[in-house]
Amino acid sequence: MGVGGEHVIFGSEALGKVIKHTLPGFYGRIMDETKLLDPRTFQNKPRLMMRAALPSEYLRRWAVMDDVFGMTTHYLGKVTGSDREPQMAVEQPFIPEDENLPATLEDAAEFFTAHGFERVADEHIINPEVHGVTWYRQRDGILVTDAHARNFRRDLDGVIIPVDLVIALVPPGASVLLPETARLWEPAEED
C-alpha cells in the first residue's frame, strides 16, 4: 500500500492489478484557465492553475487515459473510508518494470512529442510543481499535467506507459492562452 498526492494505492504484481482510492472527500486535481491579478500591472492576466476536480472530471480523466494512451482503467465505484468521507475507486493493470531502469522526464517528453503534444510554457502556469510537466494537444484539446517520471512506467519490453496523469479538456474558444482547439476529444465508439 502507498499514499500519493491524490490516491491510496493497493495492489501488487501477484494480484496483477493496482487499485486506487481517491483521498477522502477529494477527487484529484485538474488544470483550469483562470484570470488572476498581476500585482505589477494591476491587470487581470489569464493563467493555468490547478484546482480540486469534480467527480465527473476525475472520471473523464480516466476515460481519456484509456482511449488516448491505452491505460485501461475501470471505475469500481464509490467507497467510504474509515472517516466516512466518500472516495472513488479505480483499477488498473499492474505493470512490472525493471527497477534499475525507471522512466525518466526525457522519456515522458519523447512520449508526448510522439503523441502530438507540445509543452506548455511555464510562464502560463501558476503552480510551480507542474512547471515543465504540462502538455497540450491542439487537435483535440487535451491538456495534460503532472507528467512527472513517477507517473510513468517502463515495462519489461522498454515501452513507456503513463499510469496517472492529470487530464483536462479545453473546448474550442475556452482558452486565450492555448492554441485554439481544432475539435474536442470524444470517446471512441465501441464496437
Rank of each mutant, 00 (worst) to 15 (best):
M1Y: 12
G2I: 13
V3K: 13
G5P: 02
E6K: 12
V8E: 13
G11N: 06
S12E: 13
L15I: 08
V18R: 03
K20I: 08
T22V: 04
L23K: 14
G25E: 11
Y27I: 00
M31S: 09
D32W: 11
E33G: 07
T34S: 05
T34N: 02
T34G: 01
K35Q: 15
D38V: 04
D38I: 06
D38P: 02
P39Y: 10
R40D: 08
T41I: 05
T41R: 06
F42Y: 11
N44T: 07
N44K: 12
K45T: 15
R47I: 15
L48F: 12
L48S: 03
A53R: 05
S56W: 00
E57M: 02
L59M: 11
R60G: 00
R61N: 15
M65W: 01
M65Y: 04
D66W: 10
V68A: 02
V68Q: 06
G70W: 11
M71I: 15
M71P: 00
T72I: 08
T73I: 10
H74L: 14
Y75P: 00
L76K: 05
G77M: 06
G81E: 07
S82D: 14
Q87H: 01
A89S: 15
A89R: 04
V90M: 04
E91Y: 01
Q92K: 05
Q92F: 04
E97R: 06
L101A: 11
P102C: 10
P102H: 10
E106T: 15
A108H: 02
A109M: 06
E110L: 14
E110I: 13
H115V: 01
R119P: 07
V120A: 07
A121F: 13
D122T: 13
D122W: 04
H124Y: 12
I126N: 00
N127F: 06
V130Q: 00
G132V: 03
W135Q: 00
Y136T: 12
Y136C: 12
Y136E: 11
R137C: 08
D140L: 02
L143K: 06
L143W: 10
V144F: 04
R150F: 04
R150E: 15
F152L: 01
R153N: 09
R153Q: 11
D155H: 08
D157T: 15
I160T: 13
I161E: 03
P162Y: 12
P162A: 10
P162E: 10
D164K: 03
V166P: 01
A168C: 08
P172E: 06
A174E: 13
V176N: 01
L177F: 05
E180S: 10
T181G: 02
A182V: 15
R183I: 12
W185V: 13
W185P: 02
W185E: 06
E186L: 12
E189V: 15
E189G: 08
E190S: 09
D191V: 08
